[in-house]
């Protein structure tokens, strides 16, 4: 079952261009000049029901613009969108009943009210019967462990507690799709982990489709089975997390502390990333040279310490951003 289907989606912005200084400001009043920016450039993808997908990219890549078009906030210039078989631009209100959104940098809660009053408010907004709202609040309060602060005004909550409440407010109407735009931004590692666990639990228990954008590799790695990478408004990669790791984990990082320096320049398959006195950081391409062959280049007695690790996902993603290459 397809939850989201996007075909040839394009969105352009017209941005005012102003020349430098006061003269430029005066000119822009009389003859304003505009330039067109393509925020989303002819992208197509689909998301299955119950999937947790990461939709990531560097700043200005077009992630949030895409989410806003998927939720009916922005009107696309070209292309078709279908979310739960509803066109977001034509039936935004109908779609709103079926989706939930959390924008980590924007508050949707009333800060002077308690989380409980906020949840009641959202229940009313989504036309849910009072008794059902109470049941839903009870259920989500238990899952998200809100008992200790459910009657404390939102303005007095910590950021982590507030984000938990934001997510609960988005789930009060049991949405089929949850759009999370940087839900863990600014949170400490413990709270981040807690939120990730809760999102996973919710996906497992209710089959909620999760569409996540985040700059936090931890969110992506721990939550998502599929990843779409966008850059300059285009999809540069759409693949499963396993494939991504498999394709890129042929490279290993070897950090060695040696008694005496060894020269690796000219060795095919070995790239010296860092070299400081007798400390080396190498990248070994295992397709060209196995780790054991690479190790044979160093006398075992010369090694003081060694550490072999995979390339961090963060580096992989950064490389993909930089290369901007199309895998799919």
């Amino acid at each position: 079952m397809v939850a989201i289907n996007v075909k040839n989606l394009t969105k352009k912005y017209r941005v005012k261009v102003k020349e430098k200084g006061l003269t430029g400001s005066m000119k822009s009043i009389i003859h304003p000049k505009y330039k067109e920016i393509t925020a989303v450039d002819n992208i197509s993808f689909s998301v299955k029901k119950g999937e947790i997908i990461a939709f990531i990219g560097p700043n200005g890549a077009g992630k949030s613009t895409t989410i806003k078009m998927l939720t009916g906030i922005l009107y696309p210039d070209k292309g078709d969108i279908s979310v739960l078989d509803i066109s977001p631009t034509q039936r935004r209100k109908k779609l709103a009943y079926k989706i939930g959104t959390v924008f980590g940098q924007k508050e949707q809660l009333w800060t002077h009210l308690t989380p409980y009053d906020n949840f009641k408010f959202f229940g009313a907004i989504y036309d849910i019967a009072d008794s059902d709202v109470e049941k839903q609040i009870e259920k989500l309060t238990a899952i998200f462990e809100l008992d200790d602060f459910i009657n404390t005004p939102v303005r007095n909550l910590s950021l982590g507690q507030r984000i938990r409440c934001e997510i609960v407010a988005s789930l009060i109407h049991e949405p089929e799709i949850l759009f999370l735009d940087e839900p863990t931004i600014g949170l400490d590692p413990v709270v981040k982990e807690n939120i990730r666990t809760l999102i996973k639990q919710m996906n497992k228990e209710y089959g909620t489709t999760v569409f996540l954008t985040s700059h936090d590799v931890g969110d992506i790695e721990k939550l998502c089975k599929r990843i779409i990478i966008v850059n300059h408004g285009m999809i540069v990669m759409d693949d499963s997390m396993n494939n991504l790791k498999y394709n890129y984990l042929n490279k290993k990082i070897v950090e060695i502390k040696l008694k005496e320096a060894v020269d690796f320049s000219g060795d095919d398959g070995i790239t010296v990333l860092k070299s400081k006195s007798n400390n080396l950081k190498l990248e070994v391409d295992t397709c060209k040279k196995s780790i054991s062959d690479a190790m044979k280049l160093i006398d075992a007695d010369n090694i003081i310490d060694i550490n072999i690790s995979n390339v961090p996902l963060e580096n992989i993603i950064t490389d993909i951003y930089k290369e901007g290459r199309h895998i799919n």
Binding site: K68, G72, I73, K93, K94, A96, Y97, T101, I125, Y126
Partner: peptide
């Protein structure tokens, strides 16, 4: 642009 975050609810 914050209006975007208010209009995505089922009300006018």
């Amino acid at each position: 642009g914050a209006i975007a975050y208010v209009i995505n609810k089922p009300y006018h």
